[in-house]
Write a protein that binds this DNA or RNA. Structure first.
Length: 237
DNA sequence: TTAACAATAT
DNA sequence: CATATTGTTA
């Protein structure tokens, strides 16, 4: 009885939160009658769901849209302030955690670094070693600000391009003391995370975790953990 | 204690 | 390979 299937809980809700299906809608999907609910599940599914903490969520699928917001946030913040927490807050993506951004940020930095050292005219048609076109595909789908490749001057403080970032408002409230639980009442937020929608861009979530394209594994059903990297990009094939 | 970062694991 | 997770340091 220990193991259960918390996935479908907040999961289905996330999907409903989709902002708008840009133009992706492959044929033969949308089969609502088939919810991968492996039967057994907790019947305590009242409005007091708090799956945000403690439960493991499926691997986040970084869609180009999500990455776009990521790069956008980093660009606005500047490399200097581009730290996971700030980026996450500026992205205003529901459900996104600091760890999620941190992990992606790490890879993104590697991507930038790689590009710097390798920006030698290799226009010849052949990507040299290591230059996996597939790997860059995601990052390539988003324009990388040029100043990203610059080194922050140790002396010059921050000269951010523009910082209307009122969203950086940190919750200078009582921080959750470790060792005690705190019951909270969520309104429309699925996750136990508050989203300070302040800045001029009251954008909501972008990017779906799963839906026509990527798929998350099923912990109960065998071991088929095949996350397909298929995003709706007819352009970048 | 939190958070960033690096290294590692899945 | 992509993301998660962990370890270490600030």
């Amino acid at each position: 009885m220990g193991e259960e299937d918390p996935e479908s809980n907040w999961f289905s809700k996330w999907e409903q939160q989709l902002p708008k299906p840009e133009d992706l809608q492959p044929p033969s999907i949308s089969t609502p009658s088939s919810q991968p609910n492996s039967g057994e599940f907790d019947s305590s599914e009242l409005g007091g769901d708090e799956p945000a903490r403690t439960l493991k969520r499926p691997r986040l699928v970084w869609t180009p849209q999500l990455h776009k917001r990521f790069v956008d946030a980093v660009a606005q913040l500047g490399i200097k302030n581009a730290v996971p927490k700030t980026i996450m807050q500026l992205m205003s993506v529901d459900g996104l955690t600091r760890e999620n951004v941190a992990s992606h940020l790490q890879k993104y930095r590697l991507y930038l670094k790689r590009m710097q050292g390798l920006s030698s005219g290799n226009g010849g048609g052949g990507f040299g070693s290591g230059g996996d076109p597939v790997t860059d595909r995601l990052f390539a789908s988003s324009p990388v600000p040029p100043h990203f490749l610059h080194q922050s001057h140790p002396n010059s403080d921050n000269f951010l391009p523009y910082m209307p970032v009122a969203a950086l408002q940190q919750q200078h409230h009582h921080q959750q003391m470790a060792g005690h639980h705190l019951h909270r009442h969520f309104g429309s937020n699925i996750l136990g995370r508050q989203q300070p929608q302040q800045p001029g861009q009251p954008v909501h979530m972008v990017g779906a975790p799963v839906r026509n394209g990527s798929y998350v594994e099923d912990p109960q059903s065998g071991n088929e953990k095949k996350a397909l990297s298929l995003f709706p990009f007819p352009n970048l094939g």
